[in-house]
Amino acid sequence: MATNNKYLVGVYGDDDITLKAVKSIRAANIKIHEVFSPFPIHGIDEALGYKHSRLPKAAFMFGALGLTLALTMQFWMLGYDWQMIIGGKNFASLPPFVPVSFELTVLISALGMVATFLIASDLKPYKKPKIFDIRITDDKHVIAIDLGQNKLAKEEISKIVADTGAEEVNEKSFD
């Protein structure tokens, strides 16, 4: 179902109540658009049915890329492209290449993962945030329900949300 950009916004004052509310709203077969909170609520992603983030895998892949690049670079530069005798040692050997390889693995893994996070969550300096309630970055938790995506009437949803312990139930629309 398409969204009509009209939302019902349940405002909560406590993280535990919000978590319970998410469970009971979902149990009433109401689709939740998203939950917003000033700090992470543990267990809320399971309650909302979100899958585990694949960022750890991305980090591992970027790390593997960094390691490969670092080793290739060092062996190619000193072992193949321009061999130099340094202290009468081998042109290229693994042990002295370990520190730089480790550092580049960490660097590319960290930067790659963070970039993936920013892209996946669409976070960027010129983004205009879609704020459901101005207090979500202060001390209130918000459950937003997209009215266009739910069959139930607004009043019914509103009643269910209010029963879960919401301090306020507001309406919010975006143009």
């Binding site: 917003f36 700090f39 809320i44 960290a110 969550s121």
Partner: peptide, 28 residues
């Protein structure tokens, strides 16, 4: 506003944020 990258604290973002923090800690 620019510094905050348009953050609104959605549950999805927090979940990603927490795995990023944990892995960055593991790397650091």
């Amino acid at each position: 506003g620019a510094l905050s990258f348009g953050w609104v604290g959605s549950a999805k973002d927090w979940s990603r944020y927490e795995s990023v923090s944990l892995i960055l800690a593991g790397l650091a």
